[in-house]
Design a protein around this nucleic acid. Structure first.
Lengths: 241, 241
DNA sequence: CACAGGCATTGATTCAGGTCAAGGATTGTT
DNA sequence: AACAATCCTTGACCTGAATCAATGCCTGTG
């Protein structure tokens, strides 16, 4: 049984602000859950009964067009929450790309807890704002960056996220496939592959099998990504006011 | 002097949940402000001292790359809030594209009010979630839709927003320039113009000068936009839980 | 260990949308 | 009314990334 006190995701998720008693209260309405790699546990359009808070593993969040085109709107990791709804149904689908553990909440119960512990609500507002800012960065990437810039930005942002979670920023772990990366960056598998090869040829990165990239020349990568505001990239707990 | 009781934005912004006393409390820390068309009143990177709540007019929110490429992340209208910050500085720039009126709050004071009136915080969480879902839709558009699909989706979403604000959904008002539309949809001015011309040629729309579009064949436009989930498009007050 | 199925790379070719360039239509100003 | 100044449209051409098509490489399974 998972206990919140030892949760490795605790320092950067919605539980962060809670003391031991409040944590126990939260735990009482929560159930631990595990999903195998490949499991789609949220389906766009299905009744949005639950909310999830990831504690380990990586999840892809995506939307599909009628003809099968896919846009991945984010890769979720420990501390991220999942389950946005629109009119009572999920706004997107979510599939585990590695084995995943998470806390599961039923909506009505969580709503009750919000009234009891407004701190949680505030914490979630902060998380939502951060996600909104990340979404805006992604719009810049999708609307205005070249394939090369997209790949460079992607590697840097994965590296940053790893560091923020207390893991090494290099080499970068890529749990997802080339196809997933393409669906996240608005490209095709082939273009992703070609761009990796190109950066490898320039000695900017080194490919370590299919799921790892060693950054050999960080400055060059930052230069290519063209995002002046790199360090400003993610204050963990900005609040709206 | 503007009074909250008669505010036309009240029914769809963060003040929605407040009673008369609470509204007065809010008004006490707020100042009315007006900006002429063309005024950039939020600059990315500047100290984020204020938060704004639009009451009329249209604002473009955008981010710039070092070489001048621009991505507009949203057009804000009555009821929308502005002023997201990251590490104490604004996360984007904002320019009025029509004359704009808004309520201005100083951050520290608003923070104090959040503690007093948690209802506001909840209301803002709902607004933020809605914005996040809109951002995800925009990622699908930017990453995976064709120019034709983008333009059709754009016209429909403007029409929907007008209806939600109690205005006619047709003809659609376009206060922004072709260049702004391009910067929002990840296209160029020329492609926007050509696509309008093409849709006009197919009798799907009718151009009414530079700032109006008459939708002649709504079904065709919906078909072209390819967004199955049109009616689900924006429950005004979905809450996180 | 072998082998099957998915995943990744690479090459050849195409095409949607970008770029460059020239007029035409609005809009606000004196 | 004449004018800039800006915005919009249209045309000709180009190019970055998509598509089509092999082939090679992992990785998990019996």
């Amino acid at each position: 049984m998972h206990t919140c006190e030892h949760c490795e995701a605790r320092s950067f998720n919605m539980c962060n602000a809670l003391d031991a008693d409040e944590l126990a209260r939260l735990a009482s309405i929560m159930s631990d859950q595990r999903f195998e790699a490949g499991t789609t546990f949220i389906e766009e359009g299905a009744p949005a009964d639950d909310l999830f808070n990831l504690t380990s593993g990586t999840v892809k969040v995506f939307k599909l067009l009628a003809d099968g085109r896919c846009q991945i709107t984010g890769f979720m990791m420990a501390g991220d929450f999942l389950g946005l709804s629109r009119g009572g149904t999920y706004a997107y689908s979510a599939t585990a790309i590695t084995p995943v553990t998470c806390c599961r909440f039923q909506r009505p119960q969580l709503r009750g807890l919000f009234n009891e512990l407004p701190k949680i609500e505030r914490q979630m507002l902060g998380l939502a704002m951060n996600e909104l800012m990340a979404a805006q960065d992604q719009m810049v990437l999708l609307g205005r960056k070249t394939a090369r810039e997209r790949i460079a930005s992607f590697l840097l942002s994965l590296s940053d996220r790893a560091v923020r979670r207390g893991r090494p920023g290099n080499p970068v772990e890529l749990p997802m496939t080339r196809g997933d990366i393409a669906d996240y960056l608005g490209l095709t598998t082939e273009t992703v592959s070609r761009t990796f090869t190109q950066l490898k040829g320039e000695a900017v990165i080194l490919l370590k099998g299919n799921h790892g990239v060693d950054i050999q020349d960080l400055d060059a990568l930052v230069e290519i990504a063209g995002q002046e505001d790199r360090e400003a990239c993610f204050h963990p707990f900005d609040q709206i006011a």
